[in-house]
Design a protein around this nucleic acid. Structure first.
Lengths: 140, 140
DNA sequence: CTAACTGTTACTATAATAATTACAATATTG
DNA sequence: CAATATTGTAATTATTATAGTAACAGTTAG
């Protein structure tokens, strides 16, 4: 699993915060247990969420973290952007072969089409909120 | 670039075949030159395209390859499926922490939402044909 | 002052995937 | 038939994105 899973883990983290599973302050250690990874990795993702205004954190001895806004006001797209996840489909970046028309222009042409696809994907992500995810998983 | 770029290269390959840049038979060697990679890698992708019914190949001394159907009848989705490209967004697969509700059910909940997103992306890919890509790049 | 956090950086390990090599199978051509 | 050039495929190696780990400065509560 060397594939980028930060988005997925970010959703997991925010879902825990949204559930308020722990009554006291939630720390990176708690989150790491729930996710089953290291506190350090959690903190790195958490810092991105914080910078993006999705979560807030407190440093110091009673350090903790919580949602910066209502779960219904956080979309999957917000989270996707916050972690800087890679594009859905990537284009090869080998050198162009100057004598070949296709080689010279395929990337620009493909990029144009894939931009549309990326937008379609992002639109779909925008349509689901963290609150919806949480409500689904609470029913189980 | 350890990211999966087979889709992108498959489009490149098929675009060359669609253009009929070379008058004679196009070989994996020609394609490799245009893409700037090894003939072997091209052949591996080409074999997938052939199995998917998008390209046809001839073995033997006069070996070559060509489109199995009209460029306008090949969609980017066909190509995406042919190469078996990974999903747009992947979910982490760490062990569940049994004592945590979120940990146990987040993946199923997220998967449901991401299925929608994957479908949106595939729908968009289905809307662009190889012929469109080729017509765009010929204008440059 | 001490303890327990976060934020961040630097480094290592892992794994997905590209690149390379090799070779059997196949078809053309002389 | 022999020589040759190709595809198809498997095995191996190299690369690189990214996860994992460790360390530490900065911060705050007690």
């Amino acid at each position: 699993m060397a594939v980028n899973i930060q988005f997925s883990i970010a959703v997991h983290i925010l879902a825990v915060l949204a559930c308020g599973c722990d009554q006291g302050g939630v720390t990176s250690g708690h989150l790491a247990e729930s996710v089953n990874t290291s506190p350090s990795f959690v903190r790195r993702i958490l810092a991105k969420l914080s910078r993006a205004g999705l979560a807030e954190t407190a440093t110091g001895k009673a350090g903790a973290c919580w949602l910066a806004k209502e779960a219904r006001d956080i979309s999957l797209l917000d989270i996707y952007r916050a972690v800087g996840a890679p594009r859905a489909i990537s284009i090869h970046c080998y050198d162009k072969q100057k004598s070949c028309l296709v080689s010279c222009h395929i990337k620009a042409a493909l990029e144009k089409a894939l931009d549309k696809t990326q937008k379609a994907m992002e639109k779909s992500l925008a349509e689901t909120s963290l609150a919806q995810i949480v409500s689904v998983l609470k029913k189980r």
